[in-house]
């Protein structure tokens, strides 16, 4: 331990950063009367599990977590398959016009959500043959207020296509050539030769796709109506009314929502962080 100064600074910073979480957990176990006391106490005087049952029951949080898990799973899988395939094609199987198309795709990463929000809303409503729509996308509600509708804006992230292309560009062409000489088809070359080398990329794309859904609030807010399709982000906000919060249940709900991802994060910290930092080194 050569640098006690660094350790102290690091510990202080970490504790400061974690303080709000302390209050979150503490309030999750506090009965309502304890939440609003003149002098907030770090630990609940009379801990209760009541907030958790309120969060799950009234907040319909269990359903929201399941919804989120389904949406996130679809989005992660779709990104891992299609963004990787596209990135691979742009890098290793160039086709006429591919360069221009790739540029166009990359250029969309900076488009704010607000620009596409309303059109996407109308497009989601007009998906043919869904939600009572006819072949022309008229007459029904399309995929609005459905889990499928929730996945729509995130299925293939342009940034993920970009990352995939950059990654595959960095792998030698000779690998594929060797496979082709042995008579392997293109799909086999991709599947057997390049993909096994691309596991870090898969982790990165998965983390990126996951966080895209995880961080999104506006789209679920706009696209869902009923409690049946709410995801966790919205479900949590339902504890809020006109600037007032049922803090106990809200904090209990937050704790419940965070626990699974915290488990995943703590046990896979390295790949999680590596995945998130990937874009930085690449961009």
């Amino acid at each position: 331990m050569r640098r006690p100064g660094a350790l102290v600074a690091l510990a202080t910073a970490t504790i400061l950063v974690l303080m709000p979480f302390w209050w979150m957990v503490s309030m999750a176990f506090k009965p309502e009367a304890e939440v609003f006391t003149q002098e907030p106490r770090l630990l609940p005087a009379q801990p209760t599990l009541g907030n958790f049952s309120v969060a799950l029951d009234d907040g319909n949080l269990g359903r929201a977590m399941l919804n989120f898990a389904i949406v996130a799973l679809i989005v992660v899988v779709a990104n891992c398959v299609f963004a990787l395939l596209a990135g691979y094609a742009f890098a290793k199987l160039p086709f006429p016009g591919g360069g221009a198309v790739f540029l166009a795709i990359v250029s969309t990463t900076m488009v704010p959500v607000a620009v596409t929000l309303i059109p996407l809303f109308l497009i989601t409503k007009g998906i043919p043959l869904a939600g009572g729509n006819d072949l022309l996308g008229q007459g029904g509600s399309g995929l609005l207020d459905t889990l499928a509708g929730l996945t729509l804006p995130h299925l293939i992230g342009p940034l993920n296509v970009f990352l995939a292309r950059q990654f595959f560009l960095g792998l030698a062409d000779e690998l594929g050539e060797a496979g082709r000489v042995d008579g392997a088809g293109e799909l086999t070359v991709f599947w057997r030769i390049y993909l096994p080398l691309a596991k870090p990329l898969v982790a990165t794309v998965a983390v990126f796709a996951f966080t895209a859904v995880w961080d999104d609030f506006l789209w679920p807010l706009v696209v869902t109506g009923s409690a049946e399709t709410q995801t966790v982000q919205l479900a949590l906000s339902r504890f809020l009314t006109g600037g007032n919060v049922a803090y106990g249940p809200a904090m209990a709900g937050s704790v419940l929502v965070i626990l699974p991802i915290l488990a995943v994060f703590l046990f896979n910290q390295r790949s999680f962080i590596a995945g998130l930092s990937e874009g930085g080194v690449k961009g």
Binding site: L56, N60, L61, G62, R63, A64, M65, L66, A227, P260
Partner: peptide, 21 residues
């Protein structure tokens, strides 16, 4: 880890659907 996470979600779901509409 994955199993733990899934179990957490499922558990919460199981508890939650009881009171759902």
């Amino acid at each position: 880890t994955l199993a733990v996470a899934c179990a957490g979600v499922l558990l919460a779901t199981a508890c939650g659907t009881g009171g759902g509409s």
